[in-house]
């Protein structure tokens, strides 16, 4: 099987996992999860150098931080299918006594998670801290992070963006899920982000624009390019344009599915568009 075929199958299964997790507890955030399914799958399946034998310190490994913690369904699906914990555990998402909390946490000891996220805007700082420790430890591995675009409305991000640019934190690749939507509607209606490329450049970041953020080949190419740009005294940001709800026709092109679960009938329709590949949990 080609790696592309494998990734396509993996992503399709991840979409099913997202939909089924959210449906079974009638809560959670499918829209952004589906939009980032390709990106997070590629990170864990092809790009990052890590051990699924989880160790919090993650020395001599690439690390990933999810700042927009509400897209936990995609994170949990990819982690479990990358060997961090049993896929069966996806059944416990958002249920009592689960390690799969509504938003990811270290608190219940779920392998693969290194910081709690959910309250927005904190992940960039954490990623910078981990990147600085890598440098102190003479560890050449990289830090990857993912942030919502709406999340950039939180001021702490701009403290962090200023710091990383000014101090040349160049072992960090931050990606913005640039779907231009948030709970209340289009980011342009809620609080326009303006020209993000110019903003990051003004803060001394190297900016990569990824127009096709749901295209496997395009993501792989951009991540490879980003990796080549590390170690050059500049942090790197990928503005990854994604489609919220990608892969499910009635969830695309709207912000309606940001934080809403499908009903039984909708689930059936959505799953029919994403046939089982690696086996359901």
């Amino acid at each position: 099987m080609s790696t592309t075929q494998h990734l396509q199958d993996f992503v399709t299964q991840v979409r099913r996992d997202i939909l089924r997790q959210v449906h079974q507890v009638n809560s959670g955030h499918p829209g952004g999860s589906l939009g980032c399914a390709e990106f997070i799958s590629i990170l864990y399946q092809e790009v990052m150098d890590y051990s699924s034998d989880f160790d919090m310190d993650g020395k001599n490994e690439d690390l990933f931080f999810l700042s927009n913690g509400h897209i936990s369904p995609v994170f949990y699906s990819v982690l479990s299918r990358s060997g961090f914990f049993p896929v069966e555990e996806l059944k416990t998402f958002r249920k009592i006594d689960s390690r799969l909390q509504g938003h990811p946490t270290t608190h219940e000891g779920l392998p693969g998670v290194r910081i709690a996220s959910g309250s927005l805007g904190q992940g960039m700082s954490v990623a910078i801290g981990a990147a600085l420790t890598k440098k102190m430890n003479k560890d050449s591995h990289l830090i990857y992070s993912l942030h919502g675009d709406g999340e950039l409305q939180e001021g702490q991000n701009w403290e962090a963006i200023l710091y990383a640019g000014s101090k040349g934190v160049d072992n960090l690749i931050a990606t913005i899920d640039y779907n231009k939507k948030q709970i209340d509607g289009a980011t342009d209606d809620v609080l326009p982000l303006g020209n993000l490329k110019k903003k990051f450049e003004a803060f001394d970041w190297k900016v990569l624009e990824l127009r096709e953020g749901n295209d496997i080949e395009a993501i792989k190419k951009t991540l490879a390019e980003a990796k080549d740009l590390t170690g050059k005294k500049q942090p790197i940001v990928i503005l990854m344009e994604t489609e919220m709800g990608n892969g499910v026709d009635f969830m695309m092109g709207t912000h309606a599915w940001h934080g809403k679960a499908p009903n039984d009938e909708q689930l059936e329709t959505a799953l029919a568009q994403n046939q089982e590949t690696l086996g359901d949990y």
Binding site: M56, D57, G58, K59, L63, F65, R114, I115, Q122, G123, M124, S125, V126, A127, I128, G129, A130, A131, L132, T133, K134, M136, N137, D139, G155, Q156, E159, A160, L162, Y163
Partner: peptide
């Protein structure tokens, strides 16, 4: 930038600092 300071500190613990 105290918020950033706390976040960076939290991240620095990952790797043993």
């Amino acid at each position: 930038a105290e918020a950033n300071m706390i976040g960076i500190a939290a991240g620095m613990t990952i790797g043993g600092k």
